[in-house]
């Protein structure tokens, strides 16, 4: 009684899963909203101390990677395997670049004694502690999702190379792409909330 593969159903399941990811971050966005209204001035000051250059660069990097993933799907549909593999490799490299930037950003802040539980934060203004607490939790969780996304992209890359992902059956690549776009989308919200808060 096995029926033919139902790609639309697989996509439906993926969308439901993406929804749960959005709500996972949603809890943090709720916290952000409440604390922004309590500590608006501390949040503005905290935002100014973050490097907008790094933030903007990372936004650009993620947008490029999302484009690369979308292009790789189109390439697979047109049976251009090599081009698809190249696009996926570009996307994974973008992810790495993003994490490197984050490493330098975090390292810079930690060097300045700004991290959860540090003396500067613990004995400073409470609003400042909350701002940076949320900053580390949200970008940290997002970074974790970047790592997961890169792992998934690598799996898709291997499967495409072995021709398990083909023009007829590329729902796996599509779902991985959806996940990567979601990770990108969450950053699109995190970026203005932390770097551009005025």
């Amino acid at each position: 009684m096995r029926r033919a593969a139902d790609h639309q159903g697989t996509r439906l399941g993926m969308w439901l899963f993406l929804y749960t990811e959005i709500v996972l971050f949603g809890g943090l966005f709720v916290l952000y909203a409440v604390y922004l209204s309590t500590y608006s001035s501390d949040f503005i000051e905290g935002g100014k101390s973050l490097s907008r250059l790094f933030g903007a660069a990372n936004t650009l990097i993620l947008l490029i990677s999302s484009f690369a993933v979308a292009a790789s799907i189109t390439a697979v549909q047109k049976t251009q395997k090599k081009r698809s593999l190249l696009c996926l490799a570009v996307a994974i490299c973008c992810g790495l670049l993003f994490l490197m930037n984050k490493y330098f950003e975090w390292g810079h802040k930690i060097h300045a004694d700004i991290y959860p539980g540090s003396e500067t934060l613990a004995y400073g203004a409470p609003g400042r502690n909350i701002f940076f607490g949320l900053y580390y939790v949200m970008t940290g969780l997002h970074g974790l999702h970047i790592v997961i996304g890169m792992t998934l992209l690598s799996v898709a890359l291997v499967l495409t190379a072995r021709e398990r992902v083909t023009a007829e059956n590329h729902v796996l690549l599509e779902n991985v792409g959806l996940y990567w776009h979601l990770v990108d989308l969450i950053w699109i919200f995190i970026f203005p909330l932390f770097y551009l808060v005025l």
């Binding site: 500590y39 613990a122 203004a125 409470p126 909350i130 607490g133």
Partner: peptide, 14 residues
Amino acid sequence: FLGVGLFDPAKGGD
């Protein structure tokens, strides 16, 4: 583990 303080009134949390 980190003591962020998001729910700790002493650190500004609620």
